[in-house]
Design a protein around this nucleic acid. Sequence first.
DNA 1: AGGACAGTAAACCAGATGGTTGAATATGCC
DNA 2: GGCATATTCAACCATCTGGTTTACTGTCCT
Lengths: 111, 111
Amino acid sequence: MTDPLDLAFSALADPTRRAILALLLEDDMAVTDVAEPFAMSLAAISKHLNILSRAGLISQERRGRVKWCKLEPGALKCASVWMQSFGQFEPVNLDAFEKFLETELPGEACD
Amino acid sequence: MTDPLDLAFSALADPTRRAILALLLEDDMAVTDVAEPFAMSLAAISKHLNILSRAGLISQERRGRVKWCKLEPGALKCASVWMQSFGQFEPVNLDAFEKFLETELPGEACD
DNA sequence: AGGACAGTAAACCAGATGGTTGAATATGCC
DNA sequence: GGCATATTCAACCATCTGGTTTACTGTCCT
């Protein structure tokens, strides 16, 4: 599976990974700090971060023993363009951003 | 896995399913006709269509012995709003639509 | 009724996915 | 040096996924 759209969409298909992206939206974070809110081993989070990285959704830069994770919205744009091709949706207002933060982080999403 | 975003993104993660959506973009189609361009059994396509249907990306209506499949962009909108929350991408122009048809159908996508 | 066509169901298979644990590898600090 | 911290590696496991084939259920046509 090497198609960038395959990578992007299947990376986004996992709720843990979407939650990680939501965390990184606020700030760049170290792997350990990304893992902190999740009831899951550090190794599992590390794998998720690798998947996000291969999909181009985040970048990781090692400084010392800490690896910093940073949101990289380029791949999202690619996928977003693909999706918009279908719907001719009205231009999305940025209120969606706040609504997103409220709905996704607790649990369910997209009303 | 019952979260609508999970369903939408994982449905979109498969290139066969994206190609099916691209077919349905042009016209509503019967299951057999959807399957025709793919080197894959009818049963496999039927499963793909069920996945797309559960994700809300298509609807299926049985008329006689033929089941008509129709693009249903509502779920895409939900996922698209989610994605746009990240990037603050510029409003997508509809040229993307044509570029999409050229790039996705042959093979690779999204340069 | 009987046959052809449209689609699904069921059983199966190989490989991917998402998680675990425990050991290993760096790196920073005293 | 020696220890704690940050992260990954490796092996393993259960479950999901995407495909197959064969058999089945409807529906249409004559």
